[in-house]
Amino acid sequence: MIGELLKKDRIIYNMKAKSKDEALKELIEPLNLSDERRKVVLEALRKREAIGSTGIGHGIAIPHTRSVVLDSVALVVGRSKEGVDFDALDGKPVHLFFLLVAPPNDPGTKYLITLGEVARMAKKLIEKDEYLKTADEEAFFKLLKEVAGEV
């Protein structure tokens, strides 16, 4: 499932964001939503963050939300070499982002299953400790695909 969601045009190899809100804005860019839909999704993500950070620690954040304006489950992966202050649970900067968005009603709770896969994948990437050392975007994508195959 997660392997199918990984797409080259939804990878941000060098994120520019310095703050939490900038990171959310940058992460939804590859979804190519209309201004109207982008605004709604960003607001839903902000609301989700307001009830507790999705920065789960060890440099990982998994911002996620459901929204009526989305037609299907989508994943965007972002990598920040400098790190972003995302109010993570351990207080450390976030280097690896997995943005997961989905429509509210998805058959077979695909969204929650994928969210679980994303969490496992993120942890594996941290264990491998290679994601900040990849030579280029291609190598990073290859690493993501490889780890996705293991979860």
């Binding site: 709604v40 609301k47 459901r66 709770t109 929650l112 679980g116």
Partner: peptide
Amino acid sequence: IALNDIDAMLKDAESEEYRSLGFETK
């Protein structure tokens, strides 16, 4: 739309499946 999105969020936040993923749901 915002109301519906919050309802979906609440449904997730209160589910065991979601909580088991380790997200903060105080």
